[in-house]
Structure formats: C-alpha cells, structure tokens
Nucleic acid binder design. Structure first.
Lengths: 162, 162
DNA sequence: GCCTCAAACGTTATGTTATTACATTCTTCG
DNA sequence: CGAAGAATGTAATAACATAACGTTTGAGGC
C-alpha cells in the first residue's frame, strides 16, 4: 500500500509538501485559477501540519506571517482550496486538511482516530459505489458526498493492546 | 418502496409521531434509560418538523414550553437522543433529525436536498459495506460513521425539469 | 503602455453553534 | 431515610462562521 494513501503510516514527508505545492501550482495554472500567496501559504500550512486544522489555527499562522488577521482571510483561502479539491473540510471536526489525492476526481472517505486525532484520507472504490446505489434506489442526484468514520487507527490500537 | 424509508415521498405523518414516541418509550424502558420530559419533547419536536433542526431551534421551542432557555438544555437532550439512536446529527448542516429507523442497528446515509432542504435517511446495504472494506484495507477500527450526500431530490429535480 | 473591470484582500461588526462550570433537583436503591 | 449518581437550570464564555463595505491588485482589451 502506498504510504501516502493512508495517513497512519510513516512516510517521507520531506518532499511531499513541495511536491504538493508544485502540483497545486500546475493545476491552478492549467485551470486558470490564481494560487495567490495567502492561498498557497494556507495550503502549505495544512500540508506541514499533516492533520486537520481549524480555520482559526490557520488564521493564526497566516496573520503571524503578515497576512490579514480577520476570520474571512482564512475562510476565503480555505474555501478556495476546498472548492478546487486541494483541501477538504472534515465536517465532524469543523476542520480542514490538505487533500491527499489532488488531481484525481474522488469522493474521499476520512478516518478520524479518536485517540491520536490523526485523520487519514482513504480512497473509495468507485466500482463498488455505495453512493451510486443510493442514488439509483432513491432517485436522488448526488452532487457532493462526505464519508467520515470515527474510530481507532492501527497505531493506537496496537499501543492500547500492549 | 416504503414511504418512510426515503423522506422525499409523502407519507402518513399523523401516526408516525406517536408511534415513534411509543417505540422510544419502550426502547428506553427496556434499556433502563430515562426518557425524561425534555428529552421526549425534544424528540417529538424533531418528529413533528420532520426535517433537520438546529439545536437553537429546538431550544427555542423547548423554552417556550417552560423548559430551560440555555443552550445546554437543548444540547443535552439532543446528545441523549443521538447517543441512543433516536436522532442523528447532520454534520453538514449542524442540525439534528429524528431517526427514521430506530431499533435497527444501522449506519445511516443522509441525502440533503440543496433546493428544498429536505433531508432523507437512506438505509445502506450492510452486506455491500463500503465501511467494512475500508476498515479491512486500512486496519482502522470504525466506531461510528456518517455518510452525507448533497444534491437534488426527485421532487425538486422534476420541478426544475418542468 | 494604460485603462477598465472583476477578483482578491483587509477590516469591522455580527451572527451562529457549542461547551465549561457550578448550583440545584430528582431518582434509584441499599 | 439517606447516599450517590443522574438529570436539570443558569451564567458565562468559547469556538466557528459570515455579511457588508472599502481598497488593492492584476489580467485582458484597446
């Protein structure tokens, strides 16, 4: 399994930030979007932390670095990132996390460890799609969907067993 | 299709409230839980509205009826209901809705219509479970999960097509 | 190059959602 | 009855989010 696929395993974090920024740059250029300084910095903050951050956490870091200090500064940057698939909002936590699989069109599933508070983004198998099954049986047209699970990650499970 | 399974179809609402209350009463008695007046009233408010209500909406109605007027009154009642499967929180909306399938152990999927704001609780097929697939491939132990989809319900879709 | 216009940004103010903390009352059960 | 735990009420505050408005920036047409 690709270590980056599931965030509960150690991985080489040194390059993944710059790689992700580069990818975001390219994506925005190709799509005619402006990855402005605030937006880029907000993304890199999420990438650096590699966990779900509240909007006010991001705001605090942005304002320390000379960006505006008012909530809309953070919310607007985060809105941009989530709108264009560079980050996701974890509804359960009212928090934001950098997307682990940008580029790919995907419906992410999040696994939230209630012990260590890590959040992993798991890929769902589209061929197996629960969502299309639901859409079919109910006549509902799905625009966006979120799947969030709370529980215990492999690391914490191991520790508690020891 | 059972009209109550998917909330987008008309159904006989006159009895479903009292039936649900009766079922909740029995469930709590059997489980040794106290379905106190505030809790029961909070549940009936959710049932009457038959849609997702914010905690402060519920609070307003409770306080009108002589219950406490401070947020914890509503949050505690709603916590009780959600903890014991009588209601669910829709994270996407920061709102609460009475459970359409009490008794049954289930992982509900919610369909949120962005046009009429109706929320339906769809049953997921456990044998088909996306969640167990994820748990298996990641080693994550899932305690609770929420699946929420936004889109257009059959009724609104029909109207916009007309 | 320069003008125009829409997008992005900054700030003030306010709205909405949720929790902490603590005193009081009710229930259960020995 | 009396103790212990659960449930309730209230005050205060924390945490999350948006509306509204003026200013700045920079992309694209001329």
């Amino acid at each position: 399994m690709d270590p980056n696929t599931v965030g509960f395993t150690k991985h080489d974090h040194s390059h993944c930030i710059s790689d992700a920024i580069t990818a975001a740059d390219r994506m925005c250029r190709d799509a005619g979007l402006q990855l402005t300084p605030v937006r880029k910095r907000a993304l890199s903050i999420l990438l650096e932390e590699h966990r779900a951050l509240g909007a006010y956490d991001v705001l605090a870091r942005l304002s320390e670095e000379g960006f505006g200090a008012q909530p809309p500064v953070a919310y607007r940057a985060l809105d941009f990132l989530t709108k264009h698939g560079l980050a996701h909002k974890i509804e359960r936590l009212n928090a934001f996390i950098a997307c682990a699989h940008p580029n790919e069109l995907h419906t992410p599933a999040f696994l939230i460890c209630t012990t260590c508070h890590a959040v992993a983004e798991a890929e769902t198998d589209p061929s197996h799609s629960l969502l299309s099954q639901i859409a079919e049986t109910t006549g509902f047209t799905i625009a966006r969907a979120v799947l969030e699970a709370e529980g215990t990650c492999p690391n914490c499970r191991e520790k508690s067993a020891a």
